[in-house]
């Protein structure tokens, strides 16, 4: 009888402990990787490769997402706002939603799918084929070589991507506004910038940097700790994407609270 009551409790305890261990492990991993950024050598070649992979090759996906999001936003808010004659607010709604929220979050989720998965798969394969151990025997610190450049690259590249997404999102809204909803081009753009504040854009870019860091951290951590052959790497890749997506959404709330709560 007692076992029936205690077993679930024990299981809960085990789960909590495992969770704490995992969080602690990720935190230590992150700290070590960051510390390597400040100690030479720095692998510029790897940084640049990761930067291109995150920044340049994600551009099409992020751009398409942003344009369509801007278009949908304009259309949706038109049909909604027309009910109480507030159509003039459309441009502001589009630009503020995109810069504060949708730009960073959608770009983050898109990049999490692409980059989180690719980091985890690449490093995970290196782990299960002993390549990471081989690095150690070849006078190269694997954290410095594999993890640190990727973390830095993603943290810098994502804000740049989001800046592009902001511009394209607004453009998407403008397209619908002028060609479909009958706004005058300059009037729409005026309205866009009238109520936009620097803080809106900056907060979005800070979010993006945090998301970029989280994506690279979860990707590299999951890859680095993966075990169990090809199947293990597959599992690892999924975990990296799911974990970074959830963390992005959760941190988005936290960051919004920090930036905008009175």
């Amino acid at each position: 009888m007692a076992a029936l009551i205690l077993d679930p409790l024990a299981a809960l305890g085990r789960l909590t402990l495992a969770g704490c261990r995992e969080v602690g492990g990720v935190a230590l991993f992150a700290l070590e990787a960051i510390s390597h950024l400040f100690r030479p050598p720095f692998y510029w070649r790897h940084f640049w490769r990761a930067f291109v992979q995150v920044g340049w090759f994600s551009l099409p996906v992020v751009a398409l997402t942003a344009v369509f999001t801007g278009m949908v936003l304009a259309l949706q808010s038109y049909t909604g706002f027309a009910r109480f004659n507030a159509q003039s607010a459309i441009a502001s709604v589009v630009v503020i939603s995109i810069t504060r929220e949708l730009g960073p979050v959608l770009a983050g989720l898109m990049v999490a799918g692409r980059i989180g998965a690719s980091f985890a798969a690449e490093i995970g394969t290196m782990r299960v084929t002993d390549q990471i151990d081989a690095l150690t025997t070849l006078s190269t610190n694997p954290m410095k070589y594999l993890v640190a450049p990727r973390l830095l690259a993603a943290t810098i590249a994502l804000p740049l991507l989001v800046l592009v997404a902001d511009i394209l999102g607004v453009m998407g809204g403008w397209l619908i506004g002028t060609y479909k909803l009958g706004f005058l081009s300059y009037a729409y753009l005026d309205a866009t910038f009238d109520y936009l504040q620097v803080q809106d854009v900056v907060s979005g870019l800070v979010k993006a940097a945090v998301f970029g860091f989280i994506i690279a951290l979860m990707g590299t951590w999951c890859g680095y700790t993966s075990k169990g052959g090809a199947q293990g790497v597959g599992r690892t890749t999924t975990t990296a994407v799911v974990a970074s997506s959830i963390l992005i959404l959760a941190l988005d709330y936290v960051l919004t609270e920090i930036f905008f709560a009175q």
């Binding site: 290196m126 084929t129 002993d130 390549q131 151990d133 081989a134 150690t136 025997t137 006078s139």
Partner: peptide, 14 residues
């Protein structure tokens, strides 16, 4: 470790 060489069982080439 700088003075040690290792051939891994599965090669472990990059």
């Amino acid at each position: 470790a700088d003075r040690i060489g290792m051939l891994f069982q599965n090669g472990a080439l990059f």
